[in-house]
């Protein structure tokens, strides 16, 4: 029997889907290991947030307060999470494999002397774990051989926790050795967008090098994105060329998405790109090269010049409404 502690991250005091998926995965893992699921929310002045996530059915939500947790930094958060896990007797610590989860959880693992598995896509009944490797070309089944375990979960592979129960909320002060802190938050330059977040949208329209310029993203692709109420993504080639900001990158080294509908426009379908979108429910490719590998994973493939097809598609989509 192992109890689970979920680290529920927030950005500027708002939860994203990552936090709910982490709680969902934590509840699943606690169920399979016969323990309880606890949740930790870290920050300063976060009781409201703790109450919010308490509606998602854990045993207890700890509102962990400390001035050093006001802004996210890896060293302070790692101390607070590891100390709480020990104090509350939680042997398994879980978070999303988000940029925060990836940053902090390996430190938590070292503090706890725990074995770690990152970016997992499955937790089996016998406690073994599935995780993709080689850009998704292989799936490894691993077992963590220590009593304590640290896990980050791929957000597309687990269900967000339903709003189906009320956890007790317990306020607690974090134990942090401030003298040991070496990191300071300076600034966050948020990419502003009125569109749904990439990792939460049910439709994602992505553009690649085939778009040829940032201007074409704006003038050709974005009207379709907005007509569909979609989020916009991109290949690494499009990001590297400066057409769009880096946080739109989908793939092995960018974001992993699995929407209901993924439309790849002017993207060839390199394995590193597929690693970030091939679990989408329905995949559409628009590419002028009929040999493009993206067609091998597409449910619907259209061989066409995107500069003609995309505006046409926008019109057709608008007509449907």
């Amino acid at each position: 029997m192992s109890n689970v502690l979920v680290f529920a991250e927030h950005i500027n005091k708002a939860f994203s889907k990552n936090a709910l998926v982490a709680v969902g995965a934590g509840r699943e893992i606690a169920g399979k290991s016969g323990g309880e699921c606890y949740v930790a929310v870290l920050g300063s002045g976060i009781e409201g947030l703790a109450n919010e996530i308490a509606e998602h059915g854990a045993k207890t939500v700890f509102a962990v307060e400390h001035a050093a947790l006001e802004n996210y930094t890896a060293d302070a958060h790692a101390q607070a999470i590891a100390n709480l896990a020990e104090e509350k007797g939680c042997d398994i610590v879980v978070s999303a494999a988000s940029s925060i989860g990836k940053d902090v959880m390996p430190r938590v693992a070292i503090r706890l002397g725990a074995a770690m598995a990152s970016d997992i896509t499955g937790y089996n009944d016998d406690g073994t774990i599935e995780r993709p490797t080689y850009a998704g070309n292989a799936v490894a089944t691993v077992s963590l051989e220590t009593a304590k375990k640290v896990i980050t979960v791929r957000a597309t592979a687990f269900e967000p926790a339903a709003k189906d129960g009320t956890a007790a909320v317990e306020k607690t002060d974090a134990k942090i050795d401030e003298g040991a802190l070496k990191m300071k938050f300076v600034a966050f330059n948020e990419t502003k967008s009125d569109r749904p977040p990439l990792t939460e949208a049910s439709v994602v329209v992505s553009g690649g090098r085939g778009l040829k310029s940032g201007e074409n993203f704006t003038e050709v692709l974005e009207p379709l994105v907005d007509a569909m109420g979609a989020a916009m993504g991109a290949s690494r080639a499009a990001v590297d060329a400066g057409f769009v900001p880096n946080d739109l990158q989908i793939g092995q080294t960018g974001k992993v998405v699995a929407p209901e509908l993924y439309i790849a426009v002017g993207i060839s379908g390199a394995i590193q790109h597929l690693a970030g979108m091939k679990d989408s429910k329905v995949i559409v490719a628009i590419n002028k090269d009929e040999e493009a590998p993206i067609f091998q994973v597409s449910d619907y493939g259209l061989v066409a010049d995107l500069f003609k097809a995309v505006p046409e598609m926008k019109e057709a989509v608008e007509k449907l409404k």
């Binding site: 074995a115 799936v139 490894a140 089944t141 691993v142 077992s143 091939k278 597409s298 619907y300 259209l302």
Partner: peptide
């Protein structure tokens, strides 16, 4: 961490080609 096995990922079948938007 003990690796028990390495398996290929689930295959995704190519679907159909469409002619027009």
């Amino acid at each position: 961490v003990k690796t028990i096995k390495i398996a290929p990922p689930p295959e995704r079948e190519a679907g159909k080609r469409v002619e027009t938007v």
